[in-house]
């Protein structure tokens, strides 16, 4: 199915959960924060939160940066 991931179109496995998406992206779940359609998904709900066709997902993490950079 197609979703919007970090502002870009992306095809991911059908009926994926957030956890499934993070595994698909080879991203460590404990190091990221996830928004599904602008709502933050709590870490303990990653495995039970399903993504639907057309959903908008943001995956963010800590990056280098001191002040405004």
């Amino acid at each position: 199915m197609n979703i919007s991931l970090n502002g870009e179109k992306k095809e991911i496995p059908d009926n994926a959960t957030i956890l499934g998406l993070l595994e698909f992206l080879k991203t460590q779940p404990e190091r990221v924060a996830v928004e599904l359609n602008l709502n933050i998904v709590k870490k303990d709900a990653y495995g039970t939160t399903n993504i639907k066709e057309g959903d908008s997902v943001e995956v963010v993490a800590f990056m280098a940066g001191g002040m405004d950079s």
Partner: peptide, 10 residues
């Protein structure tokens, strides 16, 4: 240490 919050490079 301070860090910024950015989109993960997918």
């Amino acid at each position: 240490v301070t860090v910024s919050v950015r989109r993960v490079n997918i």
